[in-house]
Design a protein around this nucleic acid. Sequence first.
DNA 1: ACCTGAACACCGTTCAAGT
DNA 2: ACCTGAACACCGTTCAAGT
Lengths: 232, 232
Amino acid sequence: MAAKRSGAQSKRSQRVGVSLQSVQEPRSEPPLSLERIVAAAIELLDAQGIDGLKMRRLADRLGSGVMSLYWHVNNKEDVFDLALDSVLEYRGPPQIVESQDWRGEVVHMLEDWRASMLRHPWSALLLPRRALGPNILSRLELLSKTLSRAGVADADLNVAIWSLWNYVMGATITRASFDLSDDDRAAAQQHLTRCSERYPTIERSRLLLDNDWDGAFRKGLDFLLDGLAPRQ
Amino acid sequence: MAAKRSGAQSKRSQRVGVSLQSVQEPRSEPPLSLERIVAAAIELLDAQGIDGLKMRRLADRLGSGVMSLYWHVNNKEDVFDLALDSVLEYRGPPQIVESQDWRGEVVHMLEDWRASMLRHPWSALLLPRRALGPNILSRLELLSKTLSRAGVADADLNVAIWSLWNYVMGATITRASFDLSDDDRAAAQQHLTRCSERYPTIERSRLLLDNDWDGAFRKGLDFLLDGLAPRQ
DNA sequence: ACCTGAACACCGTTCAAGT
DNA sequence: ACCTGAACACCGTTCAAGT
C-alpha cells in the first residue's frame, strides 16, 4: 500500500526555537508526511465527497506541489485506501470487563461501526471496492471472538459474520446515499404520488419519507441476532 | 433523465428492400437510438467494469462519433442511470396465482433481485448512488404489496421493507466486490495467516476462504423473515 | 431531426531534474 | 531523502456547424 516511506514518521522534530516565529507566520506548512496527507484527504472527502478528491486539490491544501504527494503515496488508490481504513479505527468500549452480555456487546460494536461510517458518508460507498485494511480486520476479529465466546458454533460462525456484515453494510450504504435534503425527499415522494396508480403501496406507506433510519436499523439487527443466537 | 428524444423509438423502419444488401455489408450500423446506446453500455460495463465505460469507447462500439451520443443522452450520468434500471427489470414469477405462500414469494423475489444484480456486478456498486428508476420502484412496490397482503401491519411495513432492502443490497454488494479470483482469495487468507497473532479467530474460521455465498444469503434472509413475519 | 470535428478545461501520472 | 515543473495521455463536454 504505502510506498517507499522509511521509518521517518516518528521524526516530528521539535525545534522549539521557532515556535514564536511560527505564530507570526502560521501559514508556514510543516513538511509533508503520510499522516498529513491522509488527514487532509479525509477533510477533503468530508467536504467535497468522493468525486471531490483530486490530487491537485489535495496538494493545494497541503501547500505543496502535486507531485510531492507521489513520494509518499503510490497513486490515488492508495489515498483512498488509507483514508478509509483510518476512518474505521475502532476505539473499543471503555471497560475491558469480560461481560456476560454478548448481545449488548455485538450491538454496540455494530452500531459504532455504522456510526463511524456515517460520520464520513463517503466511507460507506468506498468500502466495497477496497481492500480490507487492518482496522477493518480488527473489527471483524473482535466480532468473531465475541460471537464465538457467546457460544456460536464454529460451523455457524462465518454465516453469522457475513450476515451481520451484509446487513450493516447495506444499511449504512443505503443510509449514506439516501440521506437527501428534505426538499429532495419531498420531491421524490411527490414523483411517487404522481405515479400512484403504479406504486400504490409504497406511496401509501410513504416509504421514501420515512426516516427513522436508526430505529429500523436496530430492529432488523435484533431479528438477525434472534436467529443467530446459539440455541441452548 | 432521457433528454430530447421524440416519440421516435417506435420508428424501427422496415425497409425490407435493403435486407439482402445488408447481408453483404453487415457492418453498416443501424441508426443510433437510446435502446442501442443502453444495450452497448451494458455490454461495455459487463466487459470492462464501471471505470471501463467511457463515452468515446461507447461511441466506438456503436460506430458513431462521440458527440452523437449527446443528442440521445444528457451526459454520462444518464447512461449509468439507464443501464442500471434496464438491468433491474423484473420478469415476475410465471404464474399469476394468488398464492398463499407469501414467504416463498418474498424469497423468490429477493433471490431474483440479487441474481439480476450479480449477473451484472457493476449494478450492485452503482445502485446506491443513483436515483430509483421505474424498475426498482416496481420491485419495491411488489415487495410491499406481498408483505402487506401477508398481514404485515402498515406501521411495520417500512421497517420490513428497509430491513430486507438493506440486507439484500449489503449481501449483493459484498458478494459482487469480494468475488476475487481463487488466487486473490488465497493471497488474502495467507496475509491473514501471517498476521494470525492479531486475527486468530477469523484466521481459524477461514473467513475469507468461505464462499458459500448463496447459502449464507439464504440463511440470513430466513432469520430476517422469521422476525418480520406477522404474529398471529 | 440527427450527427459531427475541433477545441477547452481538467485530471492522474511519467520523467528528468533539482536540493 | 524529499520535492518540483513541464509535459503526456486521456476524458467529459461546449460550441458552432453540417445534413
